[in-house]
Amino acid sequence: MSLALQLVWRLGKRSVDGVRGLGYAGALLVESLWFSVAGFRSGQTVRFAAVAEQMRQVGVDAVPIVALLSFTVGLMLGIQFVAALGDFGAESQVLMAVAKSVTREFGVLITGILIAGRSGSSFAARIGSMSVSQEVDALGVMGIDPVRYLAAPALLAMLVMLPVLTILANVMAILGAALYCAPVLDISPTVYIVQTLNLLEPGDIWQGLSKSVVFAVLITLVGVSTGFGVSGGAEGVGRATTRAVVYSISAIIVADMIFSFFLNR
Protein backbone atom coordinates (compact mmCIF):
# COMPACT_ATOMS: atom_id res chain seq x y z
CA MET A 1 0.00 0.00 0.00
CA SER A 2 1.31 3.45 -0.82
CA LEU A 3 2.31 5.68 2.03
CA ALA A 4 -0.35 8.30 1.31
CA LEU A 5 -3.08 5.71 1.22
CA GLN A 6 -1.83 4.22 4.46
CA LEU A 7 -1.90 7.64 6.11
CA VAL A 8 -5.47 8.28 4.98
CA TRP A 9 -6.47 4.82 6.12
CA ARG A 10 -4.97 5.36 9.58
CA LEU A 11 -6.55 8.77 9.90
CA GLY A 12 -9.92 7.34 8.93
CA LYS A 13 -9.58 4.48 11.39
CA ARG A 14 -8.57 6.85 14.17
CA SER A 15 -11.59 9.06 13.53
CA VAL A 16 -13.97 6.13 13.44
CA ASP A 17 -12.46 4.77 16.67
CA GLY A 18 -12.73 8.22 18.24
CA VAL A 19 -16.40 8.61 17.38
CA ARG A 20 -17.08 5.08 18.54
CA GLY A 21 -15.30 5.81 21.83
CA LEU A 22 -17.40 8.94 22.37
CA GLY A 23 -20.58 7.02 21.62
CA TYR A 24 -19.58 4.29 24.02
CA ALA A 25 -18.77 6.75 26.79
CA GLY A 26 -22.12 8.46 26.26
CA ALA A 27 -23.95 5.15 26.49
CA LEU A 28 -22.01 4.33 29.68
CA LEU A 29 -23.11 7.63 31.22
CA VAL A 30 -26.76 7.10 30.35
CA GLU A 31 -26.73 3.48 31.55
CA SER A 32 -24.96 4.28 34.83
CA LEU A 33 -27.42 7.04 35.63
CA TRP A 34 -30.33 4.83 34.61
CA PHE A 35 -29.19 1.99 36.87
CA SER A 36 -28.67 4.44 39.74
CA VAL A 37 -32.18 5.82 39.44
CA ALA A 38 -34.25 2.87 38.26
CA GLY A 39 -32.00 -0.18 38.48
CA PHE A 40 -33.85 -1.62 41.45
CA ARG A 41 -36.88 -2.18 39.25
CA SER A 42 -35.03 -4.61 37.00
CA GLY A 43 -33.11 -6.37 39.79
CA GLN A 44 -29.99 -4.28 39.19
CA THR A 45 -29.89 -2.14 42.32
CA VAL A 46 -26.82 0.03 42.71
CA ARG A 47 -25.76 -0.85 46.26
CA PHE A 48 -25.11 1.90 48.73
CA ALA A 49 -22.26 -0.13 50.20
CA ALA A 50 -20.51 -0.20 46.82
CA VAL A 51 -20.92 3.57 46.39
CA ALA A 52 -19.66 4.20 49.92
CA GLU A 53 -16.59 2.04 49.30
CA GLN A 54 -15.86 3.98 46.12
CA MET A 55 -16.38 7.26 47.97
CA ARG A 56 -13.78 6.18 50.47
CA GLN A 57 -11.26 5.24 47.78
CA VAL A 58 -11.93 8.22 45.54
CA GLY A 59 -12.57 10.86 48.16
CA VAL A 60 -11.52 10.17 51.72
CA ASP A 61 -8.21 8.55 50.79
CA ALA A 62 -7.38 11.55 48.59
CA VAL A 63 -7.90 14.14 51.33
CA PRO A 64 -4.27 14.39 52.51
CA ILE A 65 -2.76 14.78 49.06
CA VAL A 66 -5.42 17.22 47.84
CA ALA A 67 -5.04 19.29 51.00
CA LEU A 68 -1.27 19.35 50.80
CA LEU A 69 -1.01 20.20 47.13
CA SER A 70 -3.72 22.84 47.11
CA PHE A 71 -2.11 24.47 50.15
CA THR A 72 1.16 24.55 48.22
CA VAL A 73 -0.49 25.96 45.12
CA GLY A 74 -2.18 28.64 47.22
CA LEU A 75 1.17 29.58 48.72
CA MET A 76 2.69 29.74 45.25
CA LEU A 77 -0.15 31.90 43.94
CA GLY A 78 0.31 34.25 46.86
CA ILE A 79 4.01 34.62 46.09
CA GLN A 80 3.39 35.21 42.38
CA PHE A 81 0.56 37.70 42.83
CA VAL A 82 2.48 39.68 45.46
CA ALA A 83 5.47 39.87 43.12
CA ALA A 84 3.47 40.70 40.00
CA LEU A 85 1.00 43.15 41.50
CA GLY A 86 3.66 44.69 43.73
CA ASP A 87 5.37 46.00 40.58
CA PHE A 88 2.31 48.20 40.02
CA GLY A 89 1.93 49.04 43.68
CA ALA A 90 -1.36 47.15 43.62
CA GLU A 91 -0.62 44.81 46.50
CA SER A 92 -4.07 45.42 47.95
CA GLN A 93 -5.50 43.60 44.94
CA VAL A 94 -3.61 40.39 45.84
CA LEU A 95 -6.41 39.24 48.07
CA MET A 96 -8.96 39.61 45.31
CA ALA A 97 -6.74 37.92 42.70
CA VAL A 98 -6.07 34.90 44.92
CA ALA A 99 -9.67 34.52 46.03
CA LYS A 100 -11.12 34.60 42.52
CA SER A 101 -8.46 32.53 40.77
CA VAL A 102 -8.53 29.83 43.43
CA THR A 103 -12.29 29.39 43.65
CA ARG A 104 -12.96 29.70 39.95
CA GLU A 105 -9.95 27.91 38.55
CA PHE A 106 -7.12 26.48 40.57
CA GLY A 107 -8.92 24.65 43.35
CA VAL A 108 -11.00 22.59 40.96
CA LEU A 109 -8.21 22.13 38.42
CA ILE A 110 -5.69 20.82 40.95
CA THR A 111 -8.31 18.49 42.39
CA GLY A 112 -9.36 17.31 38.94
CA ILE A 113 -5.83 16.57 37.80
CA LEU A 114 -4.97 14.78 41.04
CA ILE A 115 -8.09 12.64 40.95
CA ALA A 116 -7.61 11.88 37.26
CA GLY A 117 -4.16 10.56 38.13
CA ARG A 118 -5.32 8.70 41.21
CA SER A 119 -8.80 7.43 40.44
CA GLY A 120 -9.12 7.64 36.65
CA SER A 121 -6.11 5.37 36.36
CA SER A 122 -7.36 3.03 39.05
CA PHE A 123 -10.77 2.68 37.35
CA ALA A 124 -9.02 1.81 34.10
CA ALA A 125 -6.59 -0.61 35.74
CA ARG A 126 -9.18 -2.36 37.88
CA ILE A 127 -11.82 -2.77 35.19
CA GLY A 128 -9.16 -3.49 32.57
CA SER A 129 -7.63 -6.35 34.50
CA MET A 130 -11.11 -7.66 35.28
CA SER A 131 -11.94 -7.69 31.54
CA VAL A 132 -8.72 -9.49 30.73
CA SER A 133 -9.26 -12.20 33.33
CA GLN A 134 -12.90 -12.68 32.20
CA GLU A 135 -14.20 -11.38 35.53
CA VAL A 136 -16.40 -8.91 33.66
CA ASP A 137 -17.84 -11.78 31.61
CA ALA A 138 -18.34 -13.78 34.78
CA LEU A 139 -20.33 -10.91 36.33
CA GLY A 140 -22.44 -10.75 33.19
CA VAL A 141 -23.34 -14.44 33.22
CA MET A 142 -24.14 -14.28 36.91
CA GLY A 143 -26.79 -11.74 35.94
CA ILE A 144 -24.84 -8.85 37.47
CA ASP A 145 -24.67 -6.06 34.91
CA PRO A 146 -21.01 -4.92 34.81
CA VAL A 147 -22.01 -1.31 34.17
CA ARG A 148 -24.30 -1.32 37.17
CA TYR A 149 -21.78 -3.12 39.38
CA LEU A 150 -18.55 -1.40 38.35
CA ALA A 151 -19.35 1.87 36.57
CA ALA A 152 -22.39 3.27 38.39
CA PRO A 153 -20.87 3.26 41.92
CA ALA A 154 -17.72 4.90 40.57
CA LEU A 155 -19.72 7.63 38.84
CA LEU A 156 -21.91 8.36 41.86
CA ALA A 157 -18.93 8.45 44.19
CA MET A 158 -17.09 10.85 41.90
CA LEU A 159 -20.14 13.09 41.52
CA VAL A 160 -20.28 13.49 45.29
CA MET A 161 -16.61 13.50 46.19
CA LEU A 162 -15.10 15.74 43.54
CA PRO A 163 -17.16 18.80 44.60
CA VAL A 164 -16.36 18.03 48.24
CA LEU A 165 -12.65 17.77 47.51
CA THR A 166 -12.88 20.98 45.48
CA ILE A 167 -14.24 22.85 48.47
CA LEU A 168 -11.43 21.42 50.56
CA ALA A 169 -8.90 22.51 47.95
CA ASN A 170 -10.36 26.04 47.87
CA VAL A 171 -10.08 26.35 51.63
CA MET A 172 -6.54 24.99 51.77
CA ALA A 173 -5.31 27.14 48.89
CA ILE A 174 -6.68 30.30 50.47
CA LEU A 175 -5.06 29.32 53.77
CA GLY A 176 -1.78 28.83 51.95
CA ALA A 177 -2.05 32.24 50.33
CA ALA A 178 -3.00 33.83 53.64
CA LEU A 179 0.08 32.42 55.26
CA TYR A 180 2.36 34.22 52.81
CA CYS A 181 0.33 37.33 51.95
CA ALA A 182 -0.96 38.43 55.33
CA PRO A 183 2.45 39.52 56.66
CA VAL A 184 3.25 41.21 53.35
CA LEU A 185 -0.03 43.13 53.47
CA ASP A 186 0.50 43.90 57.12
CA ILE A 187 -2.69 42.23 58.32
CA SER A 188 -3.31 39.16 60.44
CA PRO A 189 -4.17 35.88 58.65
CA THR A 190 -7.61 35.97 60.29
CA VAL A 191 -8.33 39.36 58.83
CA TYR A 192 -7.04 38.14 55.46
CA ILE A 193 -9.50 35.27 55.52
CA VAL A 194 -12.42 37.38 56.69
CA GLN A 195 -11.76 39.90 53.92
CA THR A 196 -11.55 37.07 51.39
CA LEU A 197 -14.91 35.73 52.53
CA ASN A 198 -16.42 39.20 52.16
CA LEU A 199 -15.04 39.53 48.66
CA LEU A 200 -16.17 36.17 47.35
CA GLU A 201 -19.49 35.98 45.58
CA PRO A 202 -21.54 32.80 45.42
CA GLY A 203 -20.96 32.82 41.67
CA ASP A 204 -17.23 32.27 42.16
CA ILE A 205 -17.79 29.19 44.27
CA TRP A 206 -20.47 27.87 41.92
CA GLN A 207 -18.17 28.23 38.96
CA GLY A 208 -15.63 25.92 40.58
CA LEU A 209 -18.25 23.46 41.80
CA SER A 210 -20.04 23.18 38.49
CA LYS A 211 -16.73 22.47 36.80
CA SER A 212 -15.98 19.80 39.38
CA VAL A 213 -19.20 17.97 38.48
CA VAL A 214 -18.24 18.00 34.79
CA PHE A 215 -14.71 16.84 35.65
CA ALA A 216 -16.14 14.01 37.73
CA VAL A 217 -18.14 12.78 34.75
CA LEU A 218 -15.18 13.12 32.36
CA ILE A 219 -12.68 11.32 34.61
CA THR A 220 -15.06 8.47 35.36
CA LEU A 221 -16.16 7.94 31.78
CA VAL A 222 -12.64 8.01 30.37
CA GLY A 223 -11.31 5.66 33.06
CA VAL A 224 -14.19 3.21 32.98
CA SER A 225 -14.56 3.09 29.20
CA THR A 226 -10.85 2.54 28.59
CA GLY A 227 -11.03 -0.17 31.25
CA PHE A 228 -13.90 -1.99 29.56
CA GLY A 229 -12.14 -1.63 26.19
CA VAL A 230 -8.93 -3.36 27.26
CA SER A 231 -7.69 -6.21 25.15
CA GLY A 232 -4.31 -7.83 25.02
CA GLY A 233 -3.40 -9.02 28.49
CA ALA A 234 -1.35 -7.30 31.15
CA GLU A 235 0.38 -5.05 28.64
CA GLY A 236 -3.01 -3.87 27.44
CA VAL A 237 -3.97 -2.98 31.00
CA GLY A 238 -0.81 -0.94 31.38
CA ARG A 239 -1.43 0.93 28.15
CA ALA A 240 -5.05 1.57 29.06
CA THR A 241 -4.05 3.00 32.43
CA THR A 242 -1.63 5.46 30.87
CA ARG A 243 -4.15 6.40 28.20
CA ALA A 244 -6.87 6.95 30.78
CA VAL A 245 -4.71 9.44 32.68
CA VAL A 246 -3.55 11.34 29.60
CA TYR A 247 -7.02 11.48 28.03
CA SER A 248 -8.84 12.46 31.18
CA ILE A 249 -6.39 15.24 32.05
CA SER A 250 -6.63 16.52 28.47
CA ALA A 251 -10.42 16.37 28.62
CA ILE A 252 -10.43 18.25 31.93
CA ILE A 253 -8.19 21.04 30.65
CA VAL A 254 -10.15 21.52 27.43
CA ALA A 255 -13.46 21.46 29.31
CA ASP A 256 -12.06 23.97 31.79
CA MET A 257 -11.08 26.33 28.99
CA ILE A 258 -14.49 26.10 27.37
CA PHE A 259 -16.19 26.71 30.72
CA SER A 260 -14.03 29.70 31.54
CA PHE A 261 -14.73 31.18 28.12
CA PHE A 262 -18.49 30.98 28.44
CA LEU A 263 -18.75 31.84 32.13
CA ASN A 264 -16.54 34.92 32.03
CA ARG A 265 -17.67 36.72 28.91
Partner: peptide
Protein backbone atom coordinates in the same frame (compact mmCIF):
# COMPACT_ATOMS: atom_id res chain seq x y z
CA UNK B 1 -28.98 -16.10 33.82
CA UNK B 2 -30.22 -16.83 37.30
CA UNK B 3 -30.94 -20.34 36.12
CA UNK B 4 -27.50 -20.87 34.56
CA UNK B 5 -24.19 -21.63 36.21
CA UNK B 6 -20.92 -21.06 34.37
CA UNK B 7 -17.41 -22.02 35.32
CA UNK B 8 -14.91 -20.31 33.02
CA UNK B 9 -11.76 -21.77 31.52
CA UNK B 10 -9.60 -19.58 33.79
CA UNK B 11 -11.95 -19.57 36.77
CA UNK B 12 -12.69 -15.82 36.53
CA UNK B 13 -13.03 -15.41 40.29
CA UNK B 14 -13.27 -11.75 41.31
CA UNK B 15 -9.71 -11.12 42.47
Amino acid sequence: RRRLGVSFQGGALIT
